[in-house]
Amino acid sequence: MAAAIIGRKIGMTRLYDGEGMNVPVTVIQAGPCFVSQLKTAEVDGYEAVQIAFEDIKGRSSTMPLIGHDAKAGISPKRLHREVRLGDGEAASYELGQALTLSIFDDVKYVDVIGTSKGKGFAGVMKRHGFKGQLASHGVERKHRSPGSVSGRSSNLGTGKPKKGIRMSGRMGGDRVTVRSLAVVGVDKDKNLLLVKGPVPGANKGLVLVREACRLYKGKAKHAKAK
């Protein structure tokens, strides 16, 4: 698990593959990213590479961050993300090195990590997929309610709901990983990566794209057959 890059979600569209099938596609403008820090086993206890994305004006950044980037010999950047590496892999990176989409040359499937759209305070039907109550048969004003939250066993004597009962609350705005999205196309001149299917977050949102950690069984079979 080495190759990773940061980008912005541009939006979705559709393309046609060779057989004329309709492929839903998300366009991600990814990179170029720069290596802003290398973590090694001797110093940090583990190996990782920190990549930085998107130029930012010095006055919008902070002195510590500007200094951090300057140490790697790069201009101030907006976003820094760390990617864990296997043993000895850190040697293949150097400080200030530019990472472009060419790192995905042989990659067929990627994982995309982003922040999902905020949904605000959502009820249990939306948030947890509860069924809600009936629409009729005497149900009044409780059509979307969760029903009973159940009492905890009486020997505790608390009369409280069990821990971890799913209820309504803030939904969205979470870090979400979508696994094993097929790479449909790469445009290295424009730094565009096309992946099949949706990715988390709103358009213009920041996403981290990495080589797929592992494939689901079905997809793995499919990839092998290809």
């Binding site: 569209t13 393309l15 403008q29 565009l192």
Partner: peptide, 13 residues
Amino acid sequence: MSDAILQAVQQSQ
């Protein structure tokens, strides 16, 4: 800007 990029992606097809 992002619309322009999307259009460019579609253009070839």
